[in-house]
Write a protein that binds this DNA or RNA. Sequence first.
DNA 1: CCTACCGATCGGTAGG
DNA 2: CCTACCGATCGGTAGG
Lengths: 213, 213
Amino acid sequence: MTPAETRTAGTTPAYAKGRQRREEIVTAAASVYADAGYHGASLRAIAKRVGISHATLIYYFPDREALLAAVLERRDEEDDARGFPREPVGIGGVRHLLALAAHNARHPGIVELYVRLAAEAITPEHPAHDYFTRHYRDARDYMHSAFSAMAEGGHLREGVDPRTAAVSFIALMDGLQVQWLTNPDAVDLVSPLRFFLQQVLTTSLDQALSRQS
Amino acid sequence: MTPAETRTAGTTPAYAKGRQRREEIVTAAASVYADAGYHGASLRAIAKRVGISHATLIYYFPDREALLAAVLERRDEEDDARGFPREPVGIGGVRHLLALAAHNARHPGIVELYVRLAAEAITPEHPAHDYFTRHYRDARDYMHSAFSAMAEGGHLREGVDPRTAAVSFIALMDGLQVQWLTNPDAVDLVSPLRFFLQQVLTTSLDQALSRQS
DNA sequence: CCTACCGATCGGTAGG
DNA sequence: CCTACCGATCGGTAGG
């Protein structure tokens, strides 16, 4: 099997060095997007961070949008590796999103990338618009299934609609991130989530979290 | 009193025509910011919307930042006119923010301006950073005082901390706006707020809202 | 209120 | 992987 045979229509670099270069570029792009947004990030600024010319960057990614797509693709892979959209069910989904919030609190750069791109991508014309439409739908569905399972187990207070609780929980996470990034000392990323869950549960949150399933 | 005497250090135009022109420019700027963000909005694009050259726009506002400041100033005036940070106390504050959310649902352009600028202004270097730091602090304080008064009146469930409830309520409003703008049909801007309040209150929300003060 | 211009920067291409 | 360049666009200024 020659290296040339492993190439898939020119999208995947055949050699390890090239693949590594691509990874370096994606890392640099993510951090520049976090600081300046997608529209505010120039190919030259990203290339400089890697130590190459912007023309070389374009050799690896045909245009700006392809680079953005690669950054979003990696984010999905990382979320998958963290076990995000894999058959949640029940309190496990809640436990997972609380862990994610705690993880985010130690990685402001990732949160900043996410918040800035989401705000830019409101416009349907933005190249990441479909990505965020899908992302929010998946996040709502994930929490919906978690709250539904909890409702069936009798752990949800009377009158709590799983769908509304799911939308609210995701919105709460996102809104906290903006306030926290703007003024990190004034807001905590996790405790309001625990507060919200406690209001919605019939039992103590800590008790619920320590149960299996 | 001659027109020249009414001028205050060159900041306020002396003649009605100039004042009107400034208002036209601020309106156009707000709508371009909503579509493209502050960084993505060019003076030429704003000027074109007004029907003047970009050089003429610069005659009215010395530079880009001065125009942004004027847009934010008007937003504050409009919020003041809607009675935002004026001595809230109690359920009245809640009623007011629910009305604001309903108002926002009919004016997506204003919401988009707010969400886009807030995300850009996360960076301390952004010219609107201090504005949003203040805005969030004021919003939290407003709801804190509302929830505190409700707690004193015995209308809050046991274990509900007014400060945490305030942060959460503001975050919930902001997070809903992003989801709603990205996909208007999938999310409602008001009902999750009512849901949140219902979880936190000892009595029915509708009952509480119909009481005075 | 305009045209005409400035120096800088952008994404992308040519050619090697 | 580079230099050198392209056409376009940016904020701001000059001069009227």
